[in-house]
């Protein structure tokens, strides 16, 4: 069957090449969008482990208020762990975090930094509830959700993924039109053959199979080229270009293989289905 599909492609080589290039671009964009989503998930997992909610305390907080707040936090089902950080420890952290900016550190003393409760949440995605609950309590200056700090990164990743999906959709439309045209040409080129098949009593499935195979092979080739491009991009960008950034981890080969399987399956199966639909129109059986 694969041989039938390949021999069909050779008959309309220029048309088939056009379809393969379009399908390749479409599936590469689709794969890139999927990988960006995988990247967003990777970043999410990383930050969810690290992100904390910080409750900064007023300088004038009483020890009774602090004790009451600590007791409430420990009893809160949303909170997994509570660590109290006094001004001295806050300053130690500050000097560590900004060790590359001595000018910043030199202008700040321990007295300038608030004492705080640093909370690790059971589910960091529910940080908003904690912020609402403890903002305005006695002794509380403000409640900071560190998750909000990385929100722009998520927005960037999501927007990029949506953009690639939109471009993939435009290419998909072009691919559909081209596959329709390819099937039409192919059906016309083989009309004598199909007429004889009908005449001698071949079933619809047998008559349509070569066309469906031809389209499936086109989709599969497009998928294979798309996978090659994605692998090259992973090696060039992820493993070399951005390998040294340490802000967050990048997606691994597992995500690439998962996307490769998806892209190949989508390319092959969708092209075959499209051919079957197109044949209903162009090939009377």
């Amino acid at each position: 069957m694969l041989v039938i599909g390949v021999s069909g492609l050779r008959r309309n080589l220029s048309m088939a090449l056009g379809v393969i290039v379009t399908v390749t671009i479409c599936l590469t964009l689709l794969g890139a969008g999927l990988l960006l989503r995988a990247q967003a998930r990777t970043v999410d997992r990383f930050f969810l482990d690290q992100i904390q909610v910080v409750i900064d305390l007023n300088d004038g907080v009483s020890s009774a208020e602090r004790a009451a707040l600590a007791a409430d936090l420990r009893a809160d089902p949303l909170v997994r762990a509570v660590v109290y950080e006094d001004k001295a420890r806050a300053f130690a952290r500050f000097t560590r975090d900004f060790r590359n900016s001595p000018d910043v550190v030199s202008g700040v003393s321990a007295a300038d930094l608030p004492a705080s409760f640093r909370l690790t949440l059971v589910d960091p995605r529910r940080s908003g509830e904690i912020v609402l609950e403890y903002t305005g309590r006695g002794g509380v200056d403000r409640v900071r959700d560190q998750r909000a700090l990385v929100a722009p990164l998520y927005r960037f990743l999501r927007a990029f993924a949506v953009g690639t999906f939109a471009l993939a959709a435009v290419q998909a439309f072009a691919a559909v039109v081209l596959i329709y045209a390819m099937i039409r040409l192919s059906a016309h080129g083989r009309r004598r053959e199909t007429a004889i098949m009908r005449l001698v009593g071949a079933t619809n499935a047998t008559i349509r199979a070569p066309f469906v195979m031809e389209s499936a092979v086109t989709g599969m080739l497009g998928g294979m080229f798309a996978v090659v491009i994605l692998i090259v991009c992973k090696v060039y960008f992820v493993d070399h270009k951005f390998a040294r950034q340490a802000m967050f981890p990048l997606f691994g080969w597992g995500a690439v293989w998962a996307v490769a399987v998806a892209v190949l399956l989508i390319g092959t199966v969708t092209s075959a289905i499209l051919a079957a639909v197109a044949l209903r129109r162009y090939l009377r059986v």
Partner: peptide
């Protein structure tokens, strides 16, 4: 039905003036 037309055409064959060979 359409799907049984091939069965009919296996029972009834036809030849034409223009041969229709591949």
């Amino acid at each position: 039905p359409e799907r049984r037309v091939p069965l009919l055409r296996r029972r009834v064959a036809c030849v034409f003036q223009d041969f229709r060979l591949l």
